[in-house]
Design a protein around this nucleic acid. Structure first.
Lengths: 226, 226
DNA sequence: TCCTCATGTGGACAATTGTCCGCTTCTGAT
DNA sequence: ATCAGAAGCGGACAATTGTCCACATGAGGA
C-alpha cells in the first residue's frame, strides 16, 4: 500500500506532548512559590550562566527553602526541563502544524524536524546541557525517559512509518531503531562538540545527516541540497 | 582512483592510540601509590558498583590522601578512564590487526569496528557510564576530547576515506561528519537505554546501523546480513 | 466560625566532590 | 655522604547536592 502525502490514517496522528509541568489542584501559596522559583532561576541563569548558579542560591533568591525547592523539582535538571517547557511547546506546534497542513511527504517533514532540532539545540544549549549533566548515576537514562525525548522518538517513528507507506523508505526498515539513529547525531553533547570544538556549521550537520539517511554512504551527500 | 583492499597508501595507517596513562619519569613512591589506587578502585568498583564508591573512600582504602588522589586523577572520570586502558588497548589491537591483515575492504572493517564497539559497550558499561557522568559542566565535552574517542574518530574517518577510494562510498561523502554519525548511535547513554529500557539486542542495534549506513532509509535493512 | 489534616515550608544535616597548602620524601648533583 | 629542590603526600576545608523532619498554613467540612 502506497499513500500520498494528504492521505493520513488515524494511527498516524502526531502524538500530544504532555510535559506534566502545570499541576492543577495546586495550593495558591505553592503556585506562587513555584512561579517565583522559575522566574528567579531564569533570571539568575541568564545573568551568570546555568552552571554557575546553585540550587541553594536559587532558593535563597526566591525566598524559598531547600525542602520546598526540591519538593517541586527533584533536581537541577528537572528545574531546567521546566524552564524548557515553552521552547518544547513551540517545537511541538511547528511539527504538528506541518503535519496537519499535509503538503509535504513524511520524509520532507522529517527533514524539517531535523532542522528544527538543530535550531532547538542552538537556542537552548545551556539548559539542555544542564539537563544532561543532571542525568548521571542513578538517573543515567533520565534524558531518554524525559517526556520530550519520548515524544520526539514517537514522532520520528511515526514519520518513518509514513515514509515507508509513501514509498520513500524500504518496508524492511526497523523504524523503532532507525528513530534513535536519526536523533543520536543531534544529541546535545555531540552537537556542541561539533559546533564549538570542530567548528562545524549547523547546515553542514543537518545536511550530511539528511544525505546519509537518504542513501547511506553510497548516495551522493552532495546532491541532497533538497 | 579506485583502490583494492590490499593497496594501502602511507596516509592510510591506522593511527596509534596514546592513552598517556603510564608516565615514565615517575618516582618510585608515586608509581606504587598509583598502582595501589588503581587496584583498590577496581576492587571496590567490582564489589559495590562504580557509583556507590566515593573518591574519598578509594583514597582511604588505598592509604592515600585526597591531594595525592586528585593530583594523579583530576576527577573520578579520569580514574575510570585509566581503568579502561586495557580494554581500549585490546580494542585498538583488534582494529589494527584487521587493518594489517588487509583481507577485508574498509567497509567490512568498519562493520567489524562497529561490532567491537558494541561489545566494548557491553563489557565496560559501568566504567563508561561513570566517565560520562564525570563529564559535566565545565567538562561537558571531555567525552569527546578523550584520547580514545579521538582515536576512534580518526580511525573511522580513515576507514571511510578508504571506502571512498575503494568505491564503496560516494566521493561526495563528508567523512569528517559521517564519522561522528557512525559513532553517535553507539554512545553509551543511548546504547544502555536501548539495551535495558527498550530491550533491544546488540545484533539488532549494529545490524540496523549497518543497513542504514549502507543504503540509508531507502535500502533494504533486511538484505544486509553481510 | 472553627477544626482538621493534607499540603506546603524552610533550615539543619549528611555526603560527595574537588582544592589548598604546609610537610615529607626521593633523586641526582656535588 | 650531604644537600637542595622538585615531586609527592595527606588531611583540613569550601562548595554543592539532595534529604529529613518539625512546624506552619490554607481549604473544605461541621
Amino acid at each position: 500500500m502506497v499513500r500520498k502525502p494528504g492521505d493520513v490514517g488515524e494511527r498516524y496522528e502526531i502524538p500530544a506532548l504532555d510535559f506534566g509541568v502545570l499541576p492543577h489542584g495546586e495550593r495558591r501559596d505553592a503556585a506562587e512559590s513555584r512561579r517565583r522559583v522559575l522566574d528567579t532561576a531564569r533570571e539568575l541563569f541568564e545573568e551568570r550562566g546555568v552552571d554557575a548558579v546553585s540550587m541553594h542560591e536559587i532558593g535563597r533568591a526566591a525566598g524559598v527553602g531547600q525542602g520546598t525547592l526540591y519538593r517541586r523539582y527533584e533536581h537541577k535538571g528537572a528545574l531546567c526541563s521546566a524552564l524548557l517547557f515553552e521552547s518544547t511547546e513551540r517545537f511541538y506546534e511547528g511539527v504538528r502544524a506541518r503535519a496537519e497542513k499535509g503538503d509535504d511527504t513524511a520524509l520532507i517533514q522529517l527533514w524539517r524536524l531535523i532542522d528544527d532540532l538543530a535550531v532547538f539545540n542552538e537556542e537552548n544549549a545551556p539548559l539542555l546541557g544542564a539537563v544532561r549533566d543532571a542525568a548521571g548515576g542513578e538517573r543515567r537514562m533520565e534524558m531518554y525517559r524525559n517526556p520530550f525525548y519520548g515524544w520526539l522518538r514517537a514522532t520520528v517513528i511515526l514519520l518513518l512509518r509514513r515514509a515507508v507507506d509513501e514509498g520513500d523508505a524500504t518496508p524492511n526498515l526497523d523504524v523503532e531503531y532507525a528513530a534513535d539513529f536519526v536523533l543520536a547525531p543531534l544529541n546535545i553533547d555531540l552537537y556542541l562538540f561539533q559546533r564549538h570544538e570542530l567548528g562545524m556549521q549547523p547546515a553542514r550537520i543537518t545536511g550530511v545527516l539528511r544525505g546519509l539517511l537518504l542513501d547511506g554512504l553510497r548516495g551522493g551527500a552532495g546532491r541532497l541540497s533538497e
